[in-house]
Protein backbone atom coordinates (compact mmCIF):
# COMPACT_ATOMS: atom_id res chain seq x y z
CA UNK A 1 0.00 0.00 0.00
CA UNK A 2 1.40 3.39 -1.01
CA UNK A 3 1.53 6.19 1.49
CA UNK A 4 -1.53 8.38 1.33
CA UNK A 5 -0.97 11.69 -0.41
CA UNK A 6 -2.81 14.98 -0.60
CA UNK A 7 -6.07 14.45 -2.42
CA UNK A 8 -6.45 10.77 -1.51
CA UNK A 9 -9.38 9.61 0.55
CA UNK A 10 -8.23 8.38 3.93
CA UNK A 11 -9.74 5.09 5.11
CA UNK A 12 -12.15 5.31 8.01
CA UNK A 13 -11.19 3.31 11.09
CA UNK A 14 -12.34 2.34 14.53
CA UNK A 15 -9.65 1.44 17.04
CA UNK A 16 -9.64 0.71 20.77
CA UNK A 17 -8.30 3.26 23.23
CA UNK A 18 -8.93 1.07 26.26
CA UNK A 19 -11.11 -1.85 27.42
CA UNK A 20 -14.55 -1.29 25.93
CA UNK A 21 -13.59 2.12 24.53
CA UNK A 22 -12.85 3.00 20.96
CA UNK A 23 -12.42 5.95 18.64
CA UNK A 24 -13.87 6.11 15.12
CA UNK A 25 -12.52 8.67 12.67
CA UNK A 26 -15.87 9.34 11.00
CA UNK A 27 -17.49 10.01 14.38
CA UNK A 28 -14.80 12.56 15.15
CA UNK A 29 -15.23 14.22 11.77
CA UNK A 30 -18.95 14.59 12.37
CA UNK A 31 -18.04 17.25 14.92
CA UNK A 32 -14.88 18.82 13.49
CA UNK A 33 -13.81 20.45 10.23
CA UNK A 34 -10.58 18.49 10.21
CA UNK A 35 -8.85 15.64 11.95
CA UNK A 36 -5.15 15.44 12.69
CA UNK A 37 -4.14 11.78 12.59
CA UNK A 38 -0.72 11.20 14.10
CA UNK A 39 1.07 7.84 13.97
CA UNK A 40 3.62 7.08 16.69
CA UNK A 41 5.95 4.10 16.06
CA UNK A 42 6.25 2.82 19.63
CA UNK A 43 4.73 3.73 22.97
CA UNK A 44 7.22 4.73 25.67
CA UNK A 45 10.08 5.40 23.25
CA UNK A 46 11.99 8.68 23.83
CA UNK A 47 11.48 10.14 20.38
CA UNK A 48 7.78 9.24 20.31
CA UNK A 49 7.50 10.86 23.73
CA UNK A 50 8.95 14.04 22.25
CA UNK A 51 6.60 13.84 19.29
CA UNK A 52 3.43 13.25 21.26
CA UNK A 53 4.22 15.92 23.85
CA UNK A 54 4.85 18.56 21.19
CA UNK A 55 1.47 17.67 19.70
CA UNK A 56 -0.09 17.94 23.14
CA UNK A 57 1.57 21.33 23.61
CA UNK A 58 -0.30 22.68 20.58
CA UNK A 59 -3.50 20.68 21.05
CA UNK A 60 -5.54 23.70 22.15
CA UNK A 61 -4.38 25.67 19.14
CA UNK A 62 -5.26 22.81 16.79
CA UNK A 63 -8.75 22.67 18.31
CA UNK A 64 -9.06 26.44 17.94
CA UNK A 65 -8.26 25.90 14.26
CA UNK A 66 -11.15 23.45 14.00
CA UNK A 67 -9.31 20.13 14.22
CA UNK A 68 -9.62 17.13 16.46
CA UNK A 69 -6.59 14.95 17.13
CA UNK A 70 -6.32 11.17 17.01
CA UNK A 71 -3.05 9.50 17.90
CA UNK A 72 -2.36 5.96 16.69
CA UNK A 73 0.28 3.56 17.94
CA UNK A 74 0.76 -0.12 17.00
CA UNK A 75 0.97 -1.34 20.61
CA UNK A 76 -1.78 -2.97 22.65
CA UNK A 77 -4.29 -0.71 24.33
CA UNK A 78 -3.05 -1.38 27.85
CA UNK A 79 0.28 0.04 26.83
CA UNK A 80 -1.05 2.97 24.77
CA UNK A 81 -3.55 3.90 27.46
CA UNK A 82 -0.95 3.79 30.23
CA UNK A 83 1.41 5.89 28.09
CA UNK A 84 -1.30 8.45 27.32
CA UNK A 85 -2.22 8.72 31.00
CA UNK A 86 1.43 8.98 32.02
CA UNK A 87 1.94 11.92 29.66
CA UNK A 88 -1.39 13.56 30.48
CA UNK A 89 -2.63 13.57 26.90
CA UNK A 90 -5.88 15.38 26.17
CA UNK A 91 -6.56 13.52 22.93
CA UNK A 92 -7.24 9.81 22.31
CA UNK A 93 -4.30 7.54 21.61
CA UNK A 94 -5.64 4.54 19.73
CA UNK A 95 -4.16 1.06 19.66
CA UNK A 96 -3.51 -0.32 16.16
CA UNK A 97 -2.50 -3.71 17.49
CA UNK A 98 -4.91 -6.40 16.35
CA UNK A 99 -4.50 -7.08 13.53
CA UNK A 100 -1.09 -5.50 13.92
CA UNK A 101 -0.83 -2.16 12.15
CA UNK A 102 -4.01 -2.61 10.13
CA UNK A 103 -4.73 1.12 10.00
CA UNK A 104 -1.07 2.07 9.55
CA UNK A 105 -0.95 -0.32 6.58
CA UNK A 106 -4.08 1.23 5.07
CA UNK A 107 -2.41 4.66 5.31
CA UNK A 108 0.80 3.24 3.84
CA UNK A 109 2.92 3.96 6.91
CA UNK A 110 3.46 0.51 8.43
CA UNK A 111 7.12 -0.42 8.82
CA UNK A 112 8.70 -3.83 8.36
CA UNK A 113 9.92 -3.99 11.94
CA UNK A 114 6.40 -4.18 13.33
CA UNK A 115 6.16 -0.48 14.01
CA UNK A 116 4.85 2.39 11.93
CA UNK A 117 6.56 5.41 10.43
CA UNK A 118 6.28 8.67 12.35
CA UNK A 119 3.55 10.21 10.22
CA UNK A 120 0.96 12.94 10.38
CA UNK A 121 -2.11 13.47 8.23
CA UNK A 122 -4.77 16.13 8.13
CA UNK A 123 -8.09 15.05 6.64
CA UNK A 124 -11.25 17.05 6.06
CA UNK A 125 -14.85 16.10 6.79
CA UNK A 126 -14.97 13.99 3.62
CA UNK A 127 -11.70 12.28 4.71
CA UNK A 128 -9.81 13.95 1.88
CA UNK A 129 -6.15 14.16 2.78
CA UNK A 130 -5.10 17.82 3.13
CA UNK A 131 -1.58 17.17 4.42
CA UNK A 132 0.76 14.21 4.74
CA UNK A 133 3.99 14.57 6.68
CA UNK A 134 6.11 11.46 7.11
CA UNK A 135 9.58 11.52 8.65
CA UNK A 136 12.29 8.85 9.05
CA UNK A 137 12.29 6.56 12.06
CA UNK A 138 14.16 8.16 14.92
CA UNK A 139 12.97 11.65 14.03
CA UNK A 140 10.19 13.56 15.68
CA UNK A 141 8.00 15.37 13.15
CA UNK A 142 7.15 18.34 15.37
CA UNK A 143 3.90 20.18 14.75
CA UNK A 144 4.93 22.94 12.35
CA UNK A 145 3.52 21.32 9.23
CA UNK A 146 0.18 20.70 10.90
CA UNK A 147 -0.09 24.22 12.27
CA UNK A 148 0.80 25.83 8.98
CA UNK A 149 -1.61 23.73 6.94
CA UNK A 150 -4.51 24.23 9.35
CA UNK A 151 -3.82 27.98 9.40
CA UNK A 152 -3.86 28.00 5.59
CA UNK A 153 -7.11 26.05 5.49
CA UNK A 154 -8.66 28.35 8.07
CA UNK A 155 -7.60 31.51 6.24
CA UNK A 156 -9.02 30.08 3.03
CA UNK A 157 -12.34 29.75 4.84
Amino acid sequence: MDQLSVGDTAPDFELPVGPGESVRLSDKLAHHEHAVIAFFPAAWSPVCGDAVLVLEAVADELRRLGACIVGICPDNFWSTRAWAEHLGLSFPLASDFEPKGKVARSYGVFHDEGICQPAQFIVDEARRVEMAHIVPLGKSPGAHMILKRLEELRSRG
Binding site: A51, V54, S140, G142, A143, H144
Partner: peptide, 13 residues
Protein backbone atom coordinates in the same frame (compact mmCIF):
# COMPACT_ATOMS: atom_id res chain seq x y z
CA UNK B 1 6.71 31.67 22.81
CA UNK B 2 5.94 27.95 22.94
CA UNK B 3 3.42 28.16 20.09
CA UNK B 4 5.80 30.21 17.96
CA UNK B 5 8.47 27.61 18.70
CA UNK B 6 6.19 24.81 17.56
CA UNK B 7 5.44 26.77 14.37
CA UNK B 8 9.20 27.03 13.82
CA UNK B 9 9.70 23.28 14.07
CA UNK B 10 10.41 22.54 17.71
CA UNK B 11 10.06 18.76 17.76
CA UNK B 12 10.93 17.84 21.32
CA UNK B 13 12.71 19.19 24.35
Amino acid sequence: VRLDGARSGVNGT
